[in-house]
Design a protein around this nucleic acid. Structure first.
Lengths: 349, 349
DNA sequence: CTGTTAGCGCGTTCAC
DNA sequence: GTGAACGCGCTAACAG
């Protein structure tokens, strides 16, 4: 089922693949010198290097990744593990990763573990067997078995999107907990006194945000467990409307809601329009992530801007500079900030 | 910069990598028999096969992709070329591709060509050199040089998202042109007489939709070149509001607008809210793609539902069954449908 | 700075 | 149905 019969194959792409040996012969050097000229140019004399590079481009030589991987026991593949491909958060992370990778010889392979820690573990095992150049993880909550494998990996491992007291190796993110706390403080400062929460398919980071949010409410004496609604269903705009409806059914006097992401918040906002609930006067809404759409909603959505794209870029930087002795001493624990952006769905202070 | 000094490496992941030879020894057969038991199970006697599989799982043997690729001159990598990672259209395609790939030994590598045909060509060249198991393209408008390379590729090549008279190899998509025509007909039937258009960073598929839309307007005698606005900037919700504003500035009596995607349409809709323009009575709005959010807008957005996810899945199916002689005769030119979904932003017929 | 030797782990080819 | 020999294209380790 997965092999190709020779009949189906069309013309060969090249009559004869051009190899290192071909380049070496043309340039009058040995194969290894060509290899070096390409990978460690400064270890080859400028004169020879130039000659080689000229031949390389004349012949259109392209190194064979498989052969290189086999010989060096190292690939140029970075494994990127994400819990979802739907979530806009991860498409921004992805974009950062791909943009950063363009200036490197690295290649990315995505694994989607669908919010399942055991599936994440399985993917890690598979990827690690291919001797990746690096592994980039979403979050800091891998299984113990996964941690053990990653700690023994012969490559940089980068956790992202949150902070951790005991990172596996390198890490870049922001405090999800502080972000949640920040939202509560904003709502309280804006005068809301009966704030609630809606969440969908909560991952560990959503839980961290929720914990921070609850903490701050509790400290202010405003915690009411009836105002917290969530569901295992995947997040969506439609679901936001539904959960908001559920919240109002459970606690009708709720006067503000923190939505664990902007999709839910948009759905909640649309629901207030349908019900003619006045935002921000009678209901405050705060989202999370600051998606592009959010600032254009009517009214524009108060939310928390998160550095997803920067995290993607930074994660690749952490993979790349892991090999650089000069940068190695540098920061491998990068702390970024998420910042609350007050807009029209919450009262101005 | 991209090598790793041995100092930085932590403990080895395995003390000794388990190879085919290890399994073979334990099972009392030769390496090639193990190889066959894994790849062509029916060519090995059930008894031996069972024994081998047991040893494989006991030892935790995982085949080395690089060695396999080198020996067979074939990888299990499918190259997926997309013009954007931001656009929700491609994240759905992606999701379909990744979901379908899970039941196969294939692996996906994404190339983002950022709407640049020459960059697409370069990526194709690079990928083809790695002997992929297949190539999946977005659209049908590759450069001539790219076509030539692809025609000579030793692997299935799948074009997607549109139809073509002369596909390179296999193709799965829907008629962008018909979809555009359909929108015009809907607006006309709904009684709009001064319909316009807004578009952003138009790719060949947007142009095809636009062409169909124009054709139908022209046939109805409703074509007015002043009502067509577009920009090379990347599409976004914010831009939708801006382009809609531009359109009204250029042709204030416009009474309906086809937006080349739902992001623009949402932005246009939000702008009508800010301006208190009555939708759908005084202004009809039609989007394209039917994103999840669209049906939840207020009012819900009339749009065209496109089978992006199905295309992703189908593209992988076309790669996979390229090797299957039984299915080979089957359809390699899959035509799906896009269908207009009338909702609250256009008048009911 | 450059070359020689050896082998990475597997699949192809052909023999049995 | 099973195996032996060979080589895929490249790089590590050493020698010079």
């Amino acid at each position: 089922m997965f092999g190709y019969s020779s009949q189906m194959q069309r013309q060969p792409f090249e009559n004869a693949r051009i190899t290192l040996a071909d380049v070496a012969r043309e340039a009058g050097v040995s194969a290894i010198t060509v290899s070096r000229a390409l990978r460690q140019p400064d270890k080859v004399s400028p004169k020879v290097r130039d000659r080689i590079l000229r031949v390389v481009s004349r012949l259109g030589y392209v190194p064979d990744a498989a052969a290189s991987a086999l010989a060096s026991t190292r690939t140029n593949v970075v494994a990127l593990l994400v819990p979802s491909l739907t979530n806009a958060v991860f498409s921004d992370l992805l974009r950062g990763v791909y943009d950063a990778v363009e200036t490197t010889p690295l290649t990315v392979q995505i694994g989607n573990f669908r919010y399942s820690p055991s599936k994440e573990e399985a993917l890690i095992r598979t990827f690690l067997h291919q001797r990746p150049a690096g592994v980039i993880l979403s979050g800091v909550d891998q299984t113990d078995a996964a941690r053990t494998m990653l700690e023994q990996a012969r490559c940089p491992v980068v956790q992202t999107m949150d902070l951790s007291d005991r990172p596996i190796d390198r890490i870049i993110g922001f405090s999800q907990r502080d972000a949640g706390r920040c939202v509560a403080e904003h709502l309280i400062a804006a005068g809301y006194r009966r704030p609630g929460f809606i969440g969908a398919r909560m991952d560990p980071r959503s839980h961290a945000r929720l914990a921070g949010y609850r903490d701050a409410l509790e400290a202010a004496g405003l915690l009411d467990r009836h105002r917290f609604v969530n569901t295992p269903q995947p997040s969506s705009v439609g679901l936001g409307g539904q959960l908001f409806t559920d919240l109002l059914a459970a606690a009708p006097d709720t006067d503000a809601v923190f939505c664990t992401n902007d999709d839910l918040a948009a759905g909640a906002l649309f629901e207030t329009q349908r019900r003619s609930i006045r935002v921000p006067d009678d209901m405050g809404i705060c989202g999370f992530n600051d998606l592009e759409m959010s600032r254009h909603l009517v009214p524009p959505l108060t939310t928390v801007a998160t550095p997803r794209y920067a995290i993607g870029r930074g994660a690749i930087a952490l993979v790349v500079n892991a090999g650089d002795p000069q940068v190695d001493a540098a920061e491998t624990d990068v702390r970024l900030n998420a910042s609350l952006v007050p807009r029209g769905t919450t009262r101005t202070l």
